[in-house]
């Protein structure tokens, strides 16, 4: 079991989790992810790794609260222990491509940091762009500014940076004459699909980090299979990084919607396993 060092809400509904995991920190590479299990009755949650510090032996992740298991994770207290397993997945293909465009959305804003760092270290000129519905949902800006040659932002309501999404920033930069050799997109399925389509139109090769449902995340169960260029691939061992132009997005959306009913009804029977509330406690029911 691994101790939680920091667990705080960075921006509404996005949490920063720092876990003590020396062995994981030693072997992490950009683009990899880890599996987190909040308590015995929760799912095994795959979360991309945002940062690691081999000396301190800590690993940093950003996650969104999107269901019962991530809710339980979000309500854990610092100092408690959770199951933490990683690093998993094939590292990102990092080379010196020349000028690269990296787009991050929602949890992707935290997840693109290692890729930005790796590409910068490989000598690329790195243009980073992050998107969010509004200015109060953008986070991790200082770190990204430090490691990017250019740092841009987009908000749906135009309250900060370009009005729109990461792909609108890509359009603007291309119109301004930027020549991109490759693009990387990290975010929710819809954002990655739309961004890949735009990159394809601008014939810029692009890489995406798919987020299918996973169970063991080590290549056994096959739940995370995705269809890339007509072939079945396992996102957990063959990915999560894939060529965005070749991914069968409708299939991925359908597979991600499979357990909607169970995910919804799970809220009815969610019991707080951890802080077992003895009879006659202050009636608080579930922990805050």
């Amino acid at each position: 079991m691994n101790r939680i060092i920091t667990l705080q809400e960075e921006v509404p509904n996005v949490y920063k989790l720092v876990v003590e995991a020396p062995d994981v920190a030693r072997r992490c590479k950009a683009g990899q992810f880890a599996v987190v299990i909040p308590d015995e009755k929760s799912e095994r949650i795959p979360l991309s790794i945002s940062d690691w510090d081999p000396e301190a032996g800590t690993v940093t992740l950003y996650f969104l609260e999107v269901g019962v298991s991530t809710m339980k994770l979000a309500r854990r207290k610092e100092g408690e222990e959770i199951d933490f397993m990683g690093p998993l997945g094939r590292p990102a293909d990092i080379e010196n491509y020349g000028t690269v465009f990296i787009g991050g959305g929602c949890y992707g804003v935290g997840a693109i940091l290692p890729i930005v760092k790796a590409l910068k270290a490989a000598g690329n000129r790195v243009v980073t762009a992050i998107e969010g519905r509004s200015h109060w949902l953008l986070y991790n800006k200082e770190e990204l500014i430090k490691h990017s040659d250019r740092f841009l932002r987009a908000t749906s309501d135009g309250s900060e940076g370009t009005k729109g999404k990461v792909r609108n920033v890509l359009d603007e930069q291309v119109d301004l004459g930027e020549k991109f050799d490759i693009a990387f997109f990290f975010g929710c399925t819809f954002m990655m699909m739309k961004s890949s389509k735009r990159a394809k139109e601008l014939n810029i090769p692009c890489r995406v980090y798919l987020n299918p449902i996973m169970v063991d995340a080590t290549g056994m169960c096959g739940v995370c299979r995705v269809n890339v260029d007509g072939m079945v691939k396992f996102a957990c061992v063959d990915g999560p990084e894939f060529d965005g132009a070749l991914v069968d997005w409708p299939l991925l959306f359908k597979r991600n919607r499979q357990y909607v009913a169970h995910e919804t009804l799970a809220f009815q029977h969610n019991k707080c396993e951890l802080h077992h509330h003895a009879a006659g406690d202050d009636g608080g029911g579930q922990c805050d």
Partner: peptide, 10 residues
């Protein structure tokens, strides 16, 4: 495409 809402905290 995403189907039902994502069950967020906030």
């Amino acid at each position: 495409l995403h189907g039902e809402s994502t069950k967020a905290g906030r």
